[in-house]
């Protein structure tokens, strides 16, 4: 079920294109990864969703209807560059920010108390923000983002400023929020966390969306027929047996087993590879390598950059 979508969004700043005809569709109760190199236009898209910036054209839909200004109450936004009023007390500030999102004071206090207990930060309630460490401030900021139970959560680089332990805690909370019914848009450069968390991704490069789809499918799509084979036998024989259709990328030998990474250049079936090797050696294991999100990211961006370069040269 689609929860949020953006259709053909365009945005031009005085002389740079920030978004060209970008469309995304986010399913309910899913985590959507919005990826892209620095300056690609992610933050602009996020600001448009938050009604901070208006698109030049294009439309946004929430729960099947056009989005309104008042929908900001349904969104929780954790910007990449974030901060709090330094001189204000933590509790007071959290209540104020929750009220700005449309909560009553009573509800705000109730929800905040729960979150503060859960994050073990009850003692901070009457402290000034400037008395807290940076990590503590990030926790407060996270709580103020989710306290009004937003249906749509937008996290821009949520893990920056967190130590590994707190980053893990945050990861758990994000998954929990999704399981409890929130829909999450998640922008980050940390590809490891994308693999762990995102159900679906879109990759934006130079204002254009170049990749869009479920995380698993995309990784499948970007696999380049690379296999990892463990075998017993003579490498020379294997090499000969493989012939021209295969390119050997890596090879190591040890007493117990030999290890081979090979790219299948223009075959139709994985069985061809197996058939080619089988006469030459004993196969211990055979596995196709699925690229990491990191590889997908780099490959997709490079391809897209080369295309635009070629287009320019022609």
């Amino acid at each position: 079920m689609e929860f949020f979508s953006a259709k053909n969004v365009n945005k031009v700043f005085s002389n740079t294109r920030a978004l060209s005809d970008v469309s995304i569709s986010v399913n309910e109760q899913s985590i959507f990864g919005l990826l892209g190199p620095n300056g690609a236009g992610k933050t602009t898209l996020i600001r448009i969703i938050n009604q901070i910036t208006a698109p030049d054209d294009g439309e946004l839909f929430l729960e099947g209807r056009k989005m309104r200004q008042s929908d900001v109450a349904l969104i929780g936004y954790l910007p990449e560059e974030r901060g709090l009023y330094k001189k204000m007390k933590v509790g007071e500030q959290a209540i104020y920010l929750a009220q700005l999102k449309g909560m009553t004071k009573k509800d705000a206090v109730k929800n905040l108390k729960n979150w503060f207990e859960r994050f073990e930060m009850v003692d901070w309630w009457n402290k000034k923000v400037e008395e807290l460490s940076k990590g503590m401030q990030q926790k407060v900021q996270f709580v103020t983002t989710v306290v009004h139970k937003p249906k749509l959560l937008i996290f821009d680089e949520p893990f920056s400023g967190f130590d590994p332990i707190n980053a893990n805690l945050l990861k758990r909370e994000i998954l929990q929020l999704r399981n409890d019914g929130s829909t999450i848009i998640f922008s980050t450069h940390n590809m490891g966390s994308v693999e762990e968390l995102c159900d679906h991704i879109a990759l934006i490069n130079k204002s254009v969306k170049i990749v869009d789809g479920p995380t698993d499918e995309i990784r499948q799509k970007y696999k380049s027929n690379i296999f990892e084979i463990k075998y017993k036998g003579n490498f020379q024989l294997v090499d000969k047996a493989l012939g021209r259709n295969f390119k050997i990328l890596e090879h190591t030998e040890s007493e117990k087993e030999n290890h081979l990474q090979v790219q299948y250049l223009n075959g139709d079936s994985n069985n061809d590879l197996l058939q080619a090797i089988m006469p030459a050696a004993e196969i211990l294991s055979f596995e196709e390598i699925i690229p990491s999100m990191n590889d997908v990211f780099i490959k997709a961006v490079n391809e897209s950059n080369n295309q635009t370069k070629n287009a320019k040269n022609e």
């Binding site: 901070i52 969104i75 910007p79 901060g83 330094k86």
Partner: peptide, 17 residues
Amino acid sequence: MEEKKNRIVEVIISSVK
């Protein structure tokens, strides 16, 4: 200026105009 420097302003204007 303080709000801008603190970077809290983006959070605020995602709630109010």
